[in-house]
Amino acid sequence: MKPIMLHGHERSITQIKYNLEGDLIFTCAKDSQPNVWYSINGERLGSYRGHNGAVWCIDVSWDTTQVLTGSADNTCRLWDCETGKELAVLETLTAVRSCGFSYSGRTLMYSTDKTMGHPCEIHIYDVRDSTQVSNQSPAMVIPSESSKITAAIWGPYEEYIITGHENGEICHFDVKTCEKLISVKEHNKPINDIQASKDMSMVISASKDFTAKLFETATLRHMKTYKTDRPVNSAAISPVMDHVVLGGGQEAMDVTTTSTRIGKFDAKFFHLVFEEEFGRVKGHFGPINSVAFHPDGKSYSSGGEDGYVRVHTFDPEYFDFRFEY
């Protein structure tokens, strides 16, 4: 395969996401301009101008009309997807670490960092109620007493939010009662990323403790572990094959002290069920910070510390490959 390299960021990529149909890729980086690209040819559609700091997270509504970004400049911003116009600025006390639209696109949530004496909180806004956004009064504030939230996604049916914490915990937070429903601690280092499978029946967590783990969404029952020899920054489940892809590499702060050969910057493909690695894709010059599958499963993208997003379209051999067991 010949990957398309998207070079629209000046600093390391923090998150990439496809929209529902997969024709657009949304990328954000530690520079202040999130970008949107056509996935088919890598053409840049535009960028969202307004942030004044690193953008940690990005999400797009199901109908690709609105984009949500959370940044270290203590704001979470809502954008019009088509024109790049800023629709709303939600001011926070600390940096926004993760954000997301609910499935219906009617509610949005973001989580804030536990710094400067402020607690880590999840804020939930109802987008339909314009007074909430204009008055900066979230519909719900869920405090996370224990540990900082480092990754968060909506659970199915918008009933709860699945959060990954700095101490390795994964929790369910009920949206209506603000209660912590379930909490499991399978990882012993911070969780860098949580992604759901296409039908949301499973979630995969990527952790700094060199593993990615698969959980049943509803119960957070630990099902599979994918072991590597490097911190895992991101993991995604293929929508069509029984595969997962893991992106990672040694920590960014150590990268300059070693060569790319031993930096382990390749994306690793594991079999979902057998937990065994069967393939690797090289290319990045730094650790991979985010991976995402195209919703049709025929391509995937990875964004790295080197500031590049690489869009890989699988060769037919990938689909012919059968895992031997």
Partner: peptide, 9 residues
Amino acid sequence: NTIVQVEEI
């Protein structure tokens, strides 16, 4: 800002 890699990976 869109570069198609020439070599096959």
